[in-house]
Design a protein around this nucleic acid. Sequence first.
DNA 1: GCGTCCAGGTCTACC
DNA 2: GGTAGACCTGGACGC
Length: 298
Amino acid sequence: VYLPVPDDFGFLPTVYSHGWYALPPFAVTGHQLQRVLVLPGNRAVRCTISAHRNGLRIVAGIRDVTASDRRSITTQVRQCLRLDEDFTTFHSEARRHRRFRWIAGAKAGRLLRSPTVFEDIVKTICTTNCTWSLTTLMVRNLVGLLGPRGGDGATGFPNAEAIAGSSERFLRSEVKAGYRSPYILEFAERVASRKLDPESLRSPDFAESLYESLRSIKGMGPYASESMLRLLGRYEHLALDSWVRSRYYSLHHAGRKVRDATIERSYAPFGEWKGLFFWLEMTRDALGKKIRIIPQTS
DNA sequence: GCGTCCAGGTCTACC
DNA sequence: GGTAGACCTGGACGC
């Protein structure tokens, strides 16, 4: 399957935009993004996505790809790589500031996301108050123990029904989600019973109340909700956590700690895009280590 | 080897 | 509306 991309789309800057690429069922091998997608009929299929002169090349690990499979694959890949989101305003804004000019040059700005809002929320809860290695462990266990399996051993992300069908004890002892277990279970139960539809959060109808809607999910505090807002295409919050704070201290204050309000104030001029400028500036060197075209901070 | 601290925080109770 | 204390887990660190 070949997929055309917008001119301002950068494949690797999107793949490496944040840690999601390393969390199953995403993986990276060489310059290819692997993703186990769940196709109609709850079939898990490993797909390999790579940059190609005509856009993107997607190879599915099944013999017969039907027209409906093809539609499902391209829809999900478009979602993950945000091919339908418009970044022209953002890039022209980036060109106006010397310190952000590299962003437009590198075609960066799109943040990798999951095919479903459900998956992004569960993963975000798994990032709170723990090390990245523990996040990886929790997600790996969720996928490995509850995800749908494909023919070649490919395992997709479990749907709400699968997680809701487990138990708090299982999530604690097997998934190692600890005190987050009741939060994840409650969220999955609400989604499985149709009391909550996470996909509806993409709708413009939620524009005003999006933050409050996310905060109403147990386990989604200020950091997690602001981080989720970013994945939903809203960049007006900084989503401060211990990692970006320490990054900010070392980049702008020689490692000296400053108050959150100081950080907020320094990005206030960048308005609705400030969260994205902030994130890209904080992760620029990490991205540069993955992709040579990104200039390192001098 | 063992105890302590903290990590890509959040919730609840209490003031 | 602001704050203290509890909370799973595992890796880093000091002793």
